[in-house]
Nucleic acid binder design. Structure first.
Length: 109
DNA sequence: AGCGTGACGAACT
DNA sequence: TAGTTCGCCACGC
């Protein structure tokens, strides 16, 4: 079994719509933490790989980042391509456009 | 309880 | 623009 923190992360990944991508920063902020490291670490420990779209998570840099799964970042790129997300030169095509953000109940905009 | 590491981020040089 | 460094929180030993 995993810790509560990890479950928070994996649950957040499931909120990512298909054909979209999010950033570790967004998740970290969504969880209320500032350590994107802790998030990435939890994502990497994601045992529900096919159930949790960990491949839809990318750094704020717009790059693929890393991938612990058997295949490496290359496999991650193919997974994104299967979602309709194209990757060029190891970076997300239209990253800022496909970027998905979590709602925080903001009303001021 | 303390030290080192990690699927990152932002600032500095 | 590119490379390097510190900080962050949680996990494992």
């Amino acid at each position: 079994m995993a810790t509560e923190f990890q479950k928070r992360v994996w649950d957040a990944l499931r909120l990512i719509p298909k054909g979209r991508v999010t950033t570790y920063k967004a998740i970290a902020d969504h969880l209320g933490t500032r350590a994107v490291r802790a998030v990435g670490s939890a994502v990497g420990k994601n045992p529900y790989a096919p159930e949790v779209p960990c491949h839809r998570v990318v750094p704020s840099d717009g790059t693929l980042g890393n991938y612990s799964a058997p295949g490496g970042p290359k496999r991650k790129m193919e997974l994104l391509a299967a979602e309709g997300i194209k990757v060029e030169n190891g970076k997300i095509a239209g990253f800022e456009t496909l970027l998905f953000e979590y709602e925080r109940g903001r009303e001021d905009g």
